[in-house]
């Protein structure tokens, strides 16, 4: 008896159309004179929040303001730029930090109970107002997912036009988990009424820094 794999592939093999070749890749025709403004406008229109900071240090100051305003006492943070190497506990001694890969204890239960999660970003997409995060050493999937607030520190240098330009330019292996985040978790499944924070964060705050 053939395996399912052989059966399916054999059924298809007789029907391949060798003459039909794929079209040349589509290249993005999108252009923004001011990608920063487009990113901020789009993310804001999708219930996200954008804070502009001049540099990495300013971004950290603004992060501190946001956490203070939230009254956050438990914060999970990815060990990635621009947060890696910063002595968070010394800078904000009132907050209990869980630094991914450094702090002992169960990351999942900490995140499930945290007031906020802080990450960097590997890319940002101006067209759609998206923040792209990735898994990897020091980079948890749960920090940007389980807490009610996600704060992303996004360098302007990683801002690109759209998904097409980003996908075309990116090189190398894919990490196990990459997520383009476009605003807070939301649903409209009850009578078409928008409600935020269905499973993921209710608030997404991008602190965009640098030039």
């Amino acid at each position: 008896m053939n395996t399912a794999r052989e059966d399916i592939l054999n059924a298809l093999r007789g029907r391949v159309r060798r003459s039909e070749s794929p079209p040349a890749p589509w290249q993005s025709r999108q252009h923004f004179d001011d990608p920063i403004a487009r990113f901020a406008d789009t993310l804001t229109s999708l219930y996200g929040e954008v804070i502009r900071a001049t540099n990495a240090d300013d971004a950290l100051n603004r992060l501190g303001n946001v956490l203070t305003n939230l009254g956050a006492t438990r914060v999970a943070v990815n060990d990635e730029p621009p947060l890696a190497g910063v002595d968070l506990a010394a800078r904000w001694p009132d907050i209990t930090w869980h630094i991914v890969g450094r702090t002992e204890g169960d990351l999942k239960s900490f995140c499930a109970d945290a007031d906020a999660g802080v990450t960097g970003a590997i890319a940002a997409l101006a067209e759609t107002g998206s923040i792209v995060v990735s898994s990897g050493p020091g980079r948890s999937r749960l920090v940007s997912l389980l807490p009610p607030v996600h704060i992303a520190l996004v360098p302007v240098s990683c801002l690109t036009t759209d998904l097409l330009t980003w996908a075309a330019a990116r090189a190398g292996e894919w990490p196990a988990n990459v997520v383009a985040i476009t605003g807070p978790s939301r649903t409209a499944d009850i009578e078409q009424t928008t409600a935020l924070g269905m499973h993921g964060p209710k608030r997404v705050i991008a602190i965009l820094y640098g030039e």
Binding site: S135, G138, R141, N177, R186
Partner: peptide, 22 residues
Amino acid sequence: GQPLSVYTTVLTGPARPDDPDG
């Protein structure tokens, strides 16, 4: 009618040995 859905998740294999979760 959204530019992208809120979460576009790309999965390439299970968690790597040095991933903190997944």
